[in-house]
Each structure stands twice: as structure tokens, then as C-alpha cells.
Design a protein around this nucleic acid. Structure first.
Length: 286
DNA sequence: TGCCAGGCTTCAC
DNA sequence: GTGAAGCATGGC
């Protein structure tokens, strides 16, 4: 057991921030998380966080939770005149951008399209149970997320049976691309944000939004700013001006982001997470 | 019943 | 290049 006192760390906020789908509450202030074949249980009371793992395994989780990054500097940089972002950053000040497995993020965000977060979690668990590796940690059984070779055992019909719908054909093709080397993960890791995004959108089923999610959550390009239906609604509600409505739809949101989030050069994705979390939290409370 | 969900591809124009 | 249609499935 390793216990730390951390500022800007709140496991519940991270679990509800929509960036990970295998971080689940298992008790009061207790959570479990699975990543890269590792399983962890952790608990939090205030700023005290206990990681139930060895010091060797903690090195993995320290990286996973991005614990060596100072998020205080991101929070303090929020524009004092941006009331909405100030509220969002305050509400989600314990959010961190996780360092998650690239392959898992690719498949997860491809299947995420037009699904709710609970349904995404169900699909990720179904894929893991059906095609991942079974492991046991202190008597608890868990399943790793399947790698490309494992997932390739699933036929198109198998994937559709897991209720992946029209996304099944995307996943089938991406698996093939990964196995043949057409999708080269090591090469992808070497690219800058812009080049990684361009590379990713060249694959069947990966568009601008999914590519940005993969960049932000799988490659830790924290300048990536995914624009989904939630973010569009937020931008239209809190950052809209008449001048944007005169623009073509394809240029409208990039313009709003440049105008209102351009100052967070190199880490706008963190601001994106604050507002995404905040909007969903507020609506959930209504 | 209709609309929406961490959207993408395809196809007119 | 731009915009609309079609796509699976489930919840509200």
C-alpha cells in the first residue's frame, strides 16, 4: 500500500470525466482500474490517496495518473474573465489527463461514436471479457483489453453480437490494418499532434473527433481539443457570438476554440476536460 | 413516437 | 468544399 497526499487529484472526477472507461467505483471512496494488464484498487479521503499496489507497480500507476505533472499551473492560468471556464476548472480541479494504452484508446473511441458513456463502458467490458486475457489479482478476476491479435479472432458477426452496430466494420478493418502494419502504433507515437491527427484520420472509422480523443487520451497530446455534441452545445451556449453564426458550420467551432481557448497554447485539452466534465455534472444534477 | 448519444462515410451539388 | 442522408442500438 502506498499513500500519498496530492493536490489536484480527485479519482471520482477522473472516473466521471469521460476519458477512461475501466475506472469504476467499488465502494465508498474506493475505485478499481484496469490498464495495460495491470489492476489497481485505490481509495481517496480528501487529499490522501492510497494505492493498493507494490512500489514497483506504483511506477506504472504514477505514469498512468500523470502524477508528476503540476496541474496547479494549468488551473491558475485560466482567464479570470472567463466565468464559465473558471467555474468548470474549479468544479473539476482534480481531473488529470491519464496516460492510457494507445491501442485501447483507438478501439474505445472508435466504438464510442453515437453511444452514451454507460454504453461505451459496457462495450469495452464485453470486448475485454470476450477477447482479452483473464487474470487474477488477490482473488479478483479481471480481463485485459484485447490486443490486435486477440481482437482479430472476432468476426464481423461476433463484433455485431456485442452490439457495436455500424462501428463493428470499423473495428474489424482497424484490426486488420494493425496486424498488417498499415497502422503502425510505434510510428504514431513518434508523431507530433498535428501529424498524429492527420495520420489517424486516414483510417476507416476515424474522423476528426475520434482522432482528437486518441491524441489526447492515448498519446497525451494535451493540446488536442475534441469537439463532440457536448462541446458544441457548450460553445454555442457559453461562447457564442453572432459573428460565428455567419461562418460555415465546418469553420464555426474551430474559430470559437481559437478565440476562447487559443491562449492555452499546448494544453487546451485540459480546459476541454474541465468544461466537458462540468457540463455533464451540472446536467446530471438537474 | 421522436430525439439524442464523446460521429463517420457516402453521396449529391 | 459543403451539407444532408444513412447508419445500429438503447434510453428517455
Amino acid at each position: 500500500m502506498i499513500t500519498l497526499h496530492l493536490d489536484q487529484f480527485h479519482v471520482q472526477q477522473i472516473a466521471e470525466s469521460g476519458q477512461c472507461f475501466r475506472l469504476n467505483q467499488i465502494g465508498e471512496n474506493r475505485y478499481s482500474v484496469i490498464s495495460c494488464g495491470h489492476y489497481l484498487e485505490l481509495s481517496q479521503n480528501g487529499t490522501s490517496i492510497s494505492f493498493n499496489c507494490s512500489s514497483v507497480d506504483f511506477l506504472f500507476w504514477e505514469q498512468y495518473f500523470d502524477l508528476t505533472t503540476d496541474y496547479g499551473k494549468f488551473l491558475s492560468s485560466v482567464n479570470q474573465e472567463d466565468a464559465y471556464l473558471l467555474s468548470a476548472a474549479k468544479a473539476g480541479s482534480g481531473i488529470r489527463i491519464l496516460n492510457q494504452d494507445l491501442w485501447e484508446m483507438i478501439i474505445t473511441f472508435v466504438l464510442s461514436q453515437q453511444k452514451t458513456i454507460p454504453k461505451i463502458k459496457e462495450a469495452v467490458e464485453a470486448l475485454s471479457r470476450s477477447y482479452g486475457s483473464k487474470k487474477i489479482w488477490e482473488g479478483r478476476t479481471f480481463y485485459t483489453f484485447p490486443d490486435a491479435d486477440q481482437l482479430a479472432h472476432a468476426s464481423l458477426e461476433d463484433l455485431k453480437a456485442l452490439k457495436l452496430g455500424y462501428r463493428a466494420k470499423y473495428i474489424e478493418q482497424i484490426c486488420k490494418d494493425c496486424i498488417t502494419g498499415n497502422l503502425n502504433l510505434e510510428y504514431l507515437k513518434s508523431l507530433t499532434y498535428e501529424h498524429a491527427k492527420e495520420y489517424l484520420t486516414g483510417f476507416y472509422g476515424i474522423g476528426e473527433k475520434v482522432a482528437n480523443c486518441i491524441c489526447l487520451f492515448g498519446l497525451h497530446h494535451i493540446e488536442a481539443f475534441p469537439v463532440d455534441t457536448w462541446i458544441k452545445r457548450i460553445l454555442a451556449t457559453h461562447y457564442n457570438h453572432e459573428k460565428y453564426n455567419l461562418m460555415p458550420k465546418t469553420k464555426r467551432y474551430p474559430a470559437i476554440i481559437t478565440d476562447h481557448f487559443g491562449s492555452y497554447h499546448g494544453y487546451a485539452g485540459i480546459m476541454q476536460q474541465y468544461i466537458f466534465y462540468y457540463e455533464r455534472t451540472i446536467l446530471k444534477g438537474k
